[in-house]
Write a protein that binds this DNA or RNA. Sequence first.
RNA 1: GGUCUCGUGGCCGAGCGGCUAGGCAGUGGUCUGCAAAACCAUCUACAGCGGUUCGAAUCCGCUCGAGACCUCCA
Length: 488
Amino acid sequence: MNKLKIYNTLSGKKEEFKPILKDHVGMYVCGPTVYSDVHIGNVRTFLSFDIVYRYLKFLGYSVRYVRNITDVGHLLNDEDSGEDKIGKQAKLMNLEPMEVVQHYTNGFHDVMKAFNITPPSIEPSATGHLIEQIEMVQEIINNGFAYEAGGSVYFDVEKYHDKFHYGKLSGRKIEDLISNTRDLDGQSEKRNPLDFAIWKKADESHIMRWNSPWGEGFPGWHLECTVMSTKYLGDTFDIHGGGMDLKFPHHECEIAQSKGGGKSEPANYWMHTNMLTMNGAKMSKSVGNVVSIEQLGSGDHPLLEKGFSEMVIRFFMMQSHYSSTLDLSSSAIAAAEKGFEKLMTAMETLKSLSTSDSSSVDVNTLVEKFATAMDDDFNTPILIAHLFDGVKMINSINGEKETISKSDLELLQNNMNSYVWNVLGLKPEESKGTKDELTEELMSLFIRLRKEAKDNKNYSLADEIRNKLTSLSITLKDTKDGTSWEKE
RNA sequence: GGUCUCGUGGCCGAGCGGCUAGGCAGUGGUCUGCAAAACCAUCUACAGCGGUUCGAAUCCGCUCGAGACCUCCA
């Protein structure tokens, strides 16, 4: 049944997915550095891997999904004077670093929940794995691929490259890297500017520090992912994911650390999600073109005409493939919003379709297309296109232009429900506005009065009721089964 | 400067050698007292110039344009 193909960055090709163990999959995704609010670009990455996680489970795999929290070691830049991101924020906010970590971790979890992104099986944090990281550093030194200098420990890239291949993931040539970094080389204690820190000495101003064989310091950023992924998933696991911008140097360094530390190739499949752009440029904290989750929800941003719900944005993002860049614009999300509503309406209709003795529609073929789309490297835009074929089918049956048998209806319902709710992880919008009991009573009164007026051909009164409600941003919908209402 | 990716109809976005997704908008209908909503139908493409091929949006080359990575970023 399972012909799932995944684009593997390591080989540069789409490959058939073969897990190490028959029914189990180990997946590691680089999580956020919790020093500021997550933005909508972060959401895209975690959403993409949520689809991967959900689909693997849908296929029947038992998946162990590890996604870390980076709470130490992530420097503002790669120079020796680089400040730790968490530490800097802690000073700015006058807080204990762990308060900063907790604050933004909570925020991250709230956002993930709002977007219906499934929590991982294990969410380890870097500070919780200091012992393992120190052991790993020692192991790499013992193997001769790292050296101590002035209280810090650096990974010896050239020495590693003599035996292994530094650049195999990112396709970089070590000669180019050397020539590109030569001019940046200052009074560094590194033997080679390419070398990266796996343990950093903490200077006096540094508040996050731990004892180690090399003195007080803190672990290098790349190290935590190597340690935590292999600790929970084994030396070699199935899928390693992250944003495209982590491919180099972060993931390249992870491979080097694993092998330099005497372990095997860390992951069989490397998956990289592409960036979300805003006005054609990557949305990032350093560029400053970041749209926050709150701004997207409220529409309070110069580039947004209105606010959008999390589910609409989820749907919008899944209309493009994870490996393509996606440009965010108000009109594009608004278009997705209409489409999303159309899909949700059809899902509601699907619940109560009436059946016939035979089917005039071909449910089997449609349902097969759902699986084919997802098997082709999680192609959600194709899946959504086929789901809209399903929408058309549902509406035609509802309009009595087509018929469906009882067994076909069950097949259609099961599959539409599975793919829309479980695989894509969508959920119906909670009704906006205040639909409390009093409002419901009042509205049904208005609707009844208007109907009476209409029955008496008193259209001016009927229209007055409707216009007044419209001015209160309440929309009446006349259908053959009566009138319903909606508050904007 | 080096490495790489991409340019698809009014907009967003699939496609990866032949059968020209899908959504939104537009247009024409159905329904309706009229609307709205809903539904049905339908029109606009493959940056440009060459080449390979019986056949190219899809492969190759060049030109123009956009972006990413090489430094923190999902």
